[in-house]
């Protein structure tokens, strides 16, 4: 039970991970999370293709226009589909993706409890 609590707390810490960052940091963060459509194994941040260079400019422009990170992702997924995001959105398509590993971990906990004689 203790480990569970610990994990829960750690997740909370993660979800609070939105500290202020200046604009270039935000731009880098966003472009690192975008997959380049030209060289399909790279992030836009890492790529030097024409598409990536322009996309970096677009992201910069959108940040200057005052769009939030989420709004920029929404804008781009509307244009290019969810494929462009490296960080898959949490929706009905990805429930299994996010939860299955955690379920497996909990399953492991049950096996652990059965195997080990906790009473001394």
């Amino acid at each position: 039970m203790k480990t569970l609590k610990l994990i829960f707390i750690i997740f909370l810490i993660f979800s609070l991970n939105y500290l202020k960052a200046n604009e270039t940091d935000l731009q880098n963060k966003i472009t690192k999370n975008l997959r380049c459509l030209i060289c399909q194994g790279q992030s836009v941040y890492d790529s030097d293709s024409d598409f990536a260079i322009s996309l970096k400019l677009v992201v910069k422009k959108k940040i200057n226009d005052g769009l939030s990170e989420k709004e920029i992702y929404d804008f781009l997924t509307e244009k290019y589909g969810e494929w462009i995001l490296y960080d898959p959105k949490f929706n009905k398509n990805t429930y299994i993706l996010w939860f299955l590993p955690l379920l497996i971990f909990l399953g492991g906990a049950i096996v652990f409890k059965k195997l080990i004689n906790i009473k001394k």
Binding site: D50, F51, L57, E78, K79, Y80
Partner: peptide, 13 residues
Amino acid sequence: KDGTKAIEWGAYG
């Protein structure tokens, strides 16, 4: 010139 309008259109090449 900088390819940003093409992105508004959802083009990538």
